[in-house]
Design a protein around this nucleic acid. Structure first.
Ligand code: DCP
Ligand code: MG
Ligand code: MG
Length: 932
DNA sequence: ATCCTCCCCTAC
DNA sequence: TAAGGTAGGGGAGGAT
């Protein structure tokens, strides 16, 4: 049914790709519809008068079953007053059932919904660089690594893949097909091998939505105690309904199922139990086209034979781990003590498992859950060659996520970027056409200064995250953006009701318009009207807003196709196979292995941290001296002596009440205000000294950050504290660079004193551009015997106290420092992180009459990176000041501009992260531009 | 203790 | 060819 536009948008470089992709992505559709129905239920509940006229029909049509009312208590005696009838209702092979309405002649045959139009005979084209066998092998290998089982046999569905059969996924298949072993999510190729007669039918996204609305509307006639699960599935608490109508439970279920079937032309099944778990388990038994009540007395026996993997929440990974431990059924699971399960699977999940295998589930239905995040992912069709293409696409994604955020009427505080990067060993051309193939996942998040729904703020954050990750454009295979940490004002309330309506309406309008333009009028419309009219008669037409529900349900016309569809995407995780790939593996084949909930390697933190890092508070060599003194109070008390009493000043106070976010340097008197008495400081025991310094820095930072948040005028800013001044630098030089009471650390890569293995610090790895990082990690993995990743001993806040982070030359990033730096000096990807940054900067500015643009960009990027570390802000401040001074000396406009460019980059990022700017100085030049 | 980041897993 | 999205629960380990 999806019409193929003449113009094919093959990859994400095509401007129409996003729209095209979302219009055809089933996963995008079900995700969007699922969220839509959760909101729909919330809206219905909000606007409902809680009268259900349709219930009268029930009483008329159904005999009052003796069993019911009273038996409620009888059947669930042990639950007493809490006894409930929970129904789980789910459409049978949803996509297929909807699709078959248009292909009635295929009823009774094995049918699958898929994009692939091919039959078994047809071969898919291949491309140079593809290597299915290798890709599958690598995937298997990863599985083996993850589960510490090197000998996982080729999974059947994967092994059924040859070089030419279709890798298009089956969204849903009929029960006839299932009998042959075909499953939802399976590739078409292997499915055809299992079932050569499999018929494929196209997607009908409009149909899914329409049928789903009828499903929900039908149920909602009788009760609003509904928890939406997805577009084809929900939980319904029947307790109140049954009590107030006196109708037999099974009769009611049969009645609604029948009504749904009539309404939609599609079969559904329902399971009933005394909790959601039991209801779900009952549904499995009921399918297809049936209903099943799992009575309390039967639960125990029923659960025993259930395969562990059938429990909700137990997927391929858990199933596999349990299987390795020789557990297969719930009866097996029941023999494992709770604490053992918790040790193995984690506190919560262990408990969940312990209960689930016994049919116990205490979680109540939740009718209206607030959203916690929004995201947009595209892990298909991602093929870039230039940064510019990447940027353009990122801007599109940002636009999309921004739209969704605004739709939700939410504002978020955390921006996360997730990238799929081609694994180094994976073929460049993926087996699946335009797929992501075997990837490493890299995620990085960026807290914002305050909650925002500002597109440009989001975009800046996204772009800077991209730069931080620095993945090569041509290696990207997937991109995702997520926004979370919403402002608490539960999105809902007042605007909630309208929100959904607006959303759906907008979508409907778009479709309609598009359709109208594209085609001649369609009859579908009248169908919708008819249905709406019927609904109105039958029940909750008393809605204050008839237009709402009508409009929402409205258009059976294709909708998703148009513009605003939201995207999403995801992938597996680092150094393991991608999730989606993993999900395709049948549980039975993910053999072996076991491992604790987190199978990460435990890191030998202790030694390392102590040896090379600052000792933890109250620990370490210097500790004895200080133990007698409560450090905190000590530091606080000493501060009075350590700082001069000159609180008056400047920048901070000025900025605090000023209109500008910026303070243009404390110019005139640099050295006036607060400083630490170096001698006194030097006299202190190590740990106390450091604490004092840290405390000092904290205050410095508060000064450097001139908040722009009007809602929370930072009182501290008005507090007369010291202003950053030159003395700070002097002190830094004297006190922070020279004394090395703590063990020296020249590199983040060193040898362990304990086992002789080379230790690589985690922070070091994290700071690297992905490509490099992945390579190094791979090396480490390969040489487990001689290398190990350890917790960092490096603490940014002590960057100037201990020796600064250094990196081995090989590890330096793609971009090299602009200065003709000495090779003997250990390199860091960010020259500002080097302890000799001052020299480098001086050399750079000294070396030429005009700066290279490349160098300016590099330093701007380096500066931006420092912004991310609060603890490095002071250093950044010093750096900017140093550059300012040198550039002033230079006195030429090209250098003025260079300085401004760097400042600009830094400040933009400052605004994103802290909502304020760094108090750096500006350049006043009559010739080239002026200040600011 | 609690927070934060980066995963991992699951579901449809 | 193919359309591998999206959200939430939860855990490990480091920072505070
Ligand atoms: N891997 C999957 C699983 C599901 N879906 C879509 C198609 C399904 O029709 C719909 C509903 O999912 P269900 O899990 O309810 O599966 P079905 O409805 O197809 O079958 P069942 O009768 O088992 O519910 O979601 C999908 O696209 N890809
Ligand atoms: Mg279903
Ligand atoms: Mg379902």
């Amino acid at each position: 049914s999806p019409k193929a536009p003449s113009k094919q948008s093959l990859t994400a470089t095509d401007p129409n790709f996003l729209t095209e992709f979302f219009n055809n992505s089933r996963l995008h559709h079900i995700a969007t519809l699922g969220a839509g129905f959760k909101a729909y239920v919330a809206e219905l509940r909000e606007k409902s008068s809680r009268t259900f006229p349709a219930r009268a029909l029930l009483v008329e049509s159904l005999p009052r079953h003796i069993e019911d009312r009273d038996s409620l208590g009888d059947n669930l005696p042990h639950l007493g007053a809490a006894a409930r009838y929970i129904m789980h209702i789910d459409m049978d092979c949803f996509f297929v059932s909807v699709g078959l309405r248009k292909y009635p002649h295929l009823r009774g045959l094995p049918v699958a919904v898929t994009h692939s139009r091919g039959s078994e005979a047809r071969a898919v084209p291949t491309h140079p660089g593809q290597n299915r066998a290798l890709e599958i092998e690598l995937y298997q290998k990863r599985l083996g690594e993850r589960y510490k089982a090197p000998d996982i046999p080729i999974e059947s569905r994967l092994s059924a893949i040859d070089e030419h059969n279709s890798l298009s996924e089956i969204a849903s298949c009929s029960y006839e097909a299932r009998r042959m072993g075909v499953k939802n999510g399976m590739f078409v190729g292997p499915a055809l091998k299992l079932c050569p007669d499999l018929k494929t039918i196209p997607y009908d996204f409009e149909g899914y939505r329409e049928v789903a609305y009828r499903l929900y509307d039908t149920i909602a006639q009788y009760t609003l105690d509904i928890e939406a699960v997805s577009c084809d599935e929900m939980f319904v608490d029947l307790t109140e309904l049954l009590q107030s109508t006196g109708v037999s439970m099974m009769d009611f279920v049969r009645f609604v199922r029948d009504e749904i079937s009539t309404e939609t032309g599609c079969p559904c099944s329902a399971g009933i139990g005394s909790n959601r778990l039991q209801a779900r388990m009952a549904t499995k038994r009921a399918k297809p086209n049936g209903q099943f009540w799992l009575a309390p007395s039967e639960v125990e026996g029923y659960m025993r034979d259930i395969p562990i993997g059938d429990l909700p929440g137990v997927g391929p990974s858990t199933t596999h781990r349990l299987k390795q431990m020789t557990y297969t059924t719930c009866a097996d699971l029941q023999t494992i003590p709770r604490n053992v399960l918790q040790t193995e699977f984690g506190k919560k999940f262990g408990e969940t498992l312990y209960n689930a295998c016994r049919g116990i589930d205490e979680r109540p239905l939740v009718y209206d859950k607030g959203r916690k995040s929004v995201s947009v992912d595209v892990n298909y069709g991602i093929r870039f060659t230039t940064e510019q293409e990447v940027h353009r696409f990122m801007r599109q994604l940002t636009e999309e996520i921004h739209r969704r955020l605004v739709e939700l009427r939410q504002r978020g505080k955390l921006v996360t970027v997730k990238l799929l990067v081609r694994s180094p060993e994976a073929p460049v051309e993926t087996a699946k056409f335009m797929g992501h193939g075997l990837c490493d996942v890299v995620t990085k998040s960026q807290p914002l200064a305050k909650h925002t729904d500002d597109r440009s703020v989001i975009e800046t954050a996204v772009l800077s995250l991209m730069r931080t990750i620095a993945a090569p454009p041509h290696e990207l295979r997937g991109i995702g953006i997520q926004i979370s940490k919403f402002a608490e004002g539960r999105s809902t309330d007042g605007a909630a009701g309208n929100r959904l309506k607006t959303m759906m309406l907008a979508k409907a309008e778009q479709q309609k318009q598009q359709k109208d333009e594209e085609r001649t009028g369609r009859p579908t419309r009248s169908e919708a009207e008819e249905r709406d009219a019927k609904r109105r008669l039958e029940q909750r037409d008393d809605d204050q807003q008839p237009s709402t529900s009508a409009a929402i349900r409205e258009p059976p016309i294709m909708q998703h196709s148009s513009y605003r569809l939201t995207p999403t995407k995801e992938v597996g995780s680092r150094s393991t196979e991608s999730n989606s790939v993993a999900n395709r593996v049948s549980p039975g084949h993910r053999e072996t292995a076991t491992t604790s909930p987190s199978r990460r390697q435990t890191k030998p933190v202790t030694t390392q941290a102590r040896r090379r890092g600052r000792p933890p508070k109250g620990a370490g060599p210097a500790r004895q001296q200080s133990t007698a003194m409560p450090s905190t109070s000590t530091a606080g008390g000493l501060r009075k002596f350590l700082f001069r009493a000159d609180n008056t000043k400047p920048a901070a106070a000025a900025a605090a009440n000023g209109t500008s976010n910026t303070v243009e340097g404390g110019s005139a008197n640099d050295d006036a205000s607060g400083e630490i008495d170096p001698d006194l400081l030097a006299a202190l025991p190590d740990d106390i000294r450091q604490e004092v310094i840290r405390d000092f820095r904290r205050q410095q930072q508060e000064l450097l950050l001139l908040s722009s948040d009007k809602k929370n005028p930072p009182a501290e800013h008005k507090t007369p504290v010291k202003c950053p001044t030159t003395p700070v630098r002097e002190i830094a030089k004297r006190e922070w660079n020279t004394p090395k009471t703590l063990s020296p650390r020249g590199s983040v890569v060193s040898e362990s004193a304990v086992d002789g293995r080379i230790q690589v610090e985690r922070k070091f790895l994290e700071a690297l551009p992905v490509g490099l990082r992945l390579e190094i990690e791979k090396q480490i993995a390969l040489q487990r015997d001689s290398m190990v990743v350890v917790a960092t001993g490096y603490d940014d806040s002590d960057a100037e106290i201990d020796e600064p982070l250094r990196v081995t030359p090989e590890a330096s990033p793609v971009k090299q420092p602009p200065a003709p730096s000495t090779d003997s000096i250990p390199k860091d990807s960010n020259i500002f992180r080097r302890d000799n940054w001052r020299e480098l900067v001086e050399e750079w500015i000294d070396s030429a009459d005009e700066p290279y643009e490349y160098d300016v960009e590099l330093l701007a990027a380096n500066g931006e990176e420092l912004v991310e570390n609060r603890a490095l802000l002071e250093r950044l401040y010093l750096i900017m000041r140093c550059i300012h001074r040198l550039v002033q000396q230079k006195g030429t406009c090209p250098w003025h501009r260079a300085y401004r460019a760097i400042v600009q980059a830094v400040q933009t990022r400052m605004m994103v992260i802290y909502g304020s700017r760094l108090a750096v100085r500006s350049i006043q030049c009559a010739e080239c531009n002026s200040n600011e």
